[in-house]
């Protein structure tokens, strides 16, 4: 059942197969494309600030799919039907987390190649940026899932989730973008640790949230 659910969730959220799910990646590349126009083509400035811009773009791209991530399947009664078949909410949310990350994490990392070229990020900086996104995006996905589940039963959930994600994502952003500024890969360890902690926590928090959403 887990495998069937993962296949279904991936089909829902993966870019170009799901409904409008390519948007986060397009958004990400669009920000990287527009930034040189806004600050001018000076390669030094771009190389200095570009990494931070990529991180912010990644963060915002992670917010885009949140609206549909959990609320839609609650409305559909989808989770209820899985529950009747004996699946725990935590398992549903763990699968959803995997699908959510797979649908925006790896595409974002791939999109970093054109983004980095546009922003003149090269050499060691590029390695740190790419590694940072690889270890950081699972954490962003986990925060996103928790928030999406918590706000699923609220009317203004979509607007709220963006606001909620930003402060929670600060640690990842600080260490991830900080690693670029200092050119040190040690900070990436922190990003990875934060990510792992969040990934471990998210299925339980999100599972409890959708259970609670049923009671009202």
């Amino acid at each position: 059942m887990i495998a069937a659910l993962l296949r279904r969730d991936l089909a829902q959220f993966f870019p170009f197969t799901g409904s409008g799910a390519a948007l986060p990646v397009v958004f990400f590349v669009a920000v990287a494309m527009l930034f040189p126009f806004a600050v001018g083509p000076d390669a030094n400035i771009l190389a200095k600030t570009g990494g931070g811009v990529v991180w912010i773009a990644a963060l915002l791209a992670a917010i885009l799919p949140l609206e549909k991530l959990v609320a839609r399947d609650i409305e559909l009664g989808f989770f209820d039907q899985l529950k009747l078949r004996g699946m725990a909410e935590e398992a549903m949310m763990a699968v959803r987390l995997a699908a959510h990350w797979l649908s925006f994490g790896p595409p974002l990392v791939l999109a970093t190649f054109p983004a980095a070229a546009l922003l003149k990020i090269e050499g060691e900086s590029f390695t740190i940026l790419t590694l940072g996104l690889i270890v950081g995006t699972p954490g962003l996905a986990a925060i996103g899932l928790m928030i999406a589940a918590l706000t699923a039963s609220l009317r203004a959930g979509a607007a709220l989730s963006g606001l909620l994600l930003i402060p929670l994502a600060l640690p990842i952003l600080i260490f991830g973008a900080g690693a670029l500024a200092r050119q040190d890969q040690v900070s990436l360890g922190f990003v990875g640790a934060i990510s792992l902690g969040l990934v471990a926590l998210a299925p339980f928090a999100a599972g409890a949230a959708i259970r609670a959403a049923r009671e009202n």
């Binding site: 279904r8 829902q12 409305e75 559909l76 009664g77 989808f78 209820d80 039907q81 009747l84 078949r85």
Partner: peptide, 13 residues
Amino acid sequence: ALALLDERTGLDP
């Protein structure tokens, strides 16, 4: 085991 039919189909629209 239990099957439930309610106003929500559980089917991807």
